[in-house]
Amino acid sequence: MLYRASHLWARVELVCAAALAASVTGLILLNVVTRAAGNAIYWVDEAAIYAMVWMTFLAASAAIHFRSAIAVTLVNEMLDGHGARMLERVVDLVLFIFACLMVWICLRWFMPLELMRAGWDVKAFQGQTFNFIYAEPTNTLGLPKVWVWLVMPLFTLGALLHSAANLFYPGRHPEAETAQ
């Protein structure tokens, strides 16, 4: 169940990442066309950059599920079957610990509980916590930056789901159909 949820979510992450990769290309080409027409659009660069950031973190989370991230496999290759499996369990555990730490870090960063206690009043919240992330603007998009930053908690939850699934269902190696 947990594993199927992880697999399904990884597929969703990849589909979104692919769409974002396409929009990066589209936005940059849009920039070329509009500037050649003497009508440069102010916000295109920033939009392209954020599309790339979202693509990166979504695909990075999916890479945990597919175990396709780049690693130094020197020792792993020298071990026998049993040792290699043990080492893989250790790595799964380390990844799970990392995901838990990221949950804690995102909570420190977004402070959702304190925001709720302040009655969702950003000004009051800022006065109490000196945390200004909900007031941070984007440079050119006219969008609060916190919407863009949401990819970090999204990445964190994905990493938590995938690493937990890998931890509880060891030895599964889903075919990373898009990794090669």
Partner: peptide, 21 residues
């Protein structure tokens, strides 16, 4: 095939860019 190509682009560039992050 474009969808699969963009998915590979996303996956492979993420491998590099996530490391830069």
């Amino acid at each position: 095939d474009l969808g699969a190509m963009f998915a590979r682009t996303a996956t492979n560039s993420s491998l590099v860019i996530f490391m830069i992050a």
